[in-house]
Computed example of a mutant assay.
Amino acid sequence: MRFIPTLFAYYATSVAAIGIALVVNNTPSPIYVWSVGGSIGARNDIRPGGGIYWERMHRDERSGGIAIKVTKTPDGLYSGAPQQIFAYNLEGEQVWYDLSSVFGEPFVGYEVKVEMDAGESIVWPNGTNPGGSRVKSASNEGNLFLFINPRS
């Protein structure tokens, strides 16, 4: 069962058209998130145990897609630390989404899962890429979630 705070549930259902992208930190430690397109957004510190980062999905005019980069260290985007990349690209009435990593896999031992309201999930059950490309697409009216969960 997915927990969405009341504010987000209201926002997601009261705004027509394009959905929101959320990162949910269910780990016992803080994580750090940047939204990257043609430029790098500010760092967002996400508290442990259910902390959330969210943004309304949008198209970057310079790069097209958005990469939400997640690290376990506050300077991870600039220090070469392992990065989890939760990417999406709006194209017409579709959103294309993917999960990848660079410089290593920061959440080894955790379940890393992307869920889309109206689309297929991408699951890395052990925090590592199980192999192959898993690019998915769905209607851009749905909400897109990245969950970082302790393994059951």
Rank of each mutant, 00 (worst) to 15 (best):
N25T: 02
N25G: 01
N26S: 12
N26G: 08
N26P: 06
T27Y: 05
T27E: 03
T27S: 10
T27M: 08
P28N: 14
P28C: 06
P28I: 00
P28T: 05
P28Y: 08
P28H: 09
P28A: 14
S29Q: 15
S29H: 15
S29T: 12
P30M: 09
P30R: 03
I31Q: 02
I31G: 00
V33Q: 01
W34G: 03
S35I: 07
S35H: 11
S35Y: 08
V36T: 09
G37H: 08
G38K: 07
S39K: 13
I40F: 11
G41A: 12
G41Q: 10
A42V: 00
A42P: 04
A42E: 06
R43E: 14
R43Y: 14
R43H: 10
N44F: 13
D45N: 09
I46S: 02
I46N: 06
I46H: 06
I46Q: 06
I46K: 00
R47T: 05
R47V: 05
R47A: 13
R47F: 10
P48L: 07
P48A: 07
G49T: 13
G49W: 14
G49L: 15
G50Q: 13
G50V: 07
I52P: 04
Y53I: 01
Y53G: 00
W54K: 01
E55Q: 12
R56I: 11
R56P: 00
R56E: 04
M57R: 07
M57S: 03
M57I: 15
M57Q: 13
H58T: 12
R59I: 11
R59D: 10
D60P: 11
E61C: 09
R62A: 11
S63G: 06
S63C: 05
S63P: 06
S63V: 05
G64N: 15
G64K: 08
G65H: 13
G65V: 11
G65E: 07
I66S: 01
I66Q: 05
I66D: 05
A67H: 04
A67C: 09
A67I: 08
V70N: 04
V70M: 10
V70S: 04
T71C: 12
T71F: 04
K72T: 00
K72Y: 02
T73W: 02
T73L: 00
P74I: 01
P74V: 02
D75K: 00
D75R: 03
D75P: 07
G76M: 03
G76C: 06
G76Y: 05
L77G: 03
Y78K: 09
S79A: 12
S79D: 12
S79N: 10
G80L: 07
P82D: 11
P82S: 09
P82M: 15
Q83A: 02
Q83R: 02
Q83H: 03
Q83T: 00
Q84F: 14
Q84I: 07
Q84S: 09
F86I: 00
F86S: 01
A87W: 12
Y88S: 04
N89R: 12
N89D: 15
L90E: 08
L90M: 10
E91V: 14
E91Q: 08
E93S: 13
E93C: 08
E93P: 00
Q94H: 15
Q94V: 13
Q94N: 15
V95N: 00
V95K: 01
V95T: 08
W96N: 08
W96L: 12
W96S: 05
W96K: 10
Y97C: 12
Y97E: 06
Y97N: 04
S100L: 02
S100E: 04
S100V: 02
S100P: 02
V102D: 02
V102I: 14
V102A: 15
F103N: 13
G104N: 06
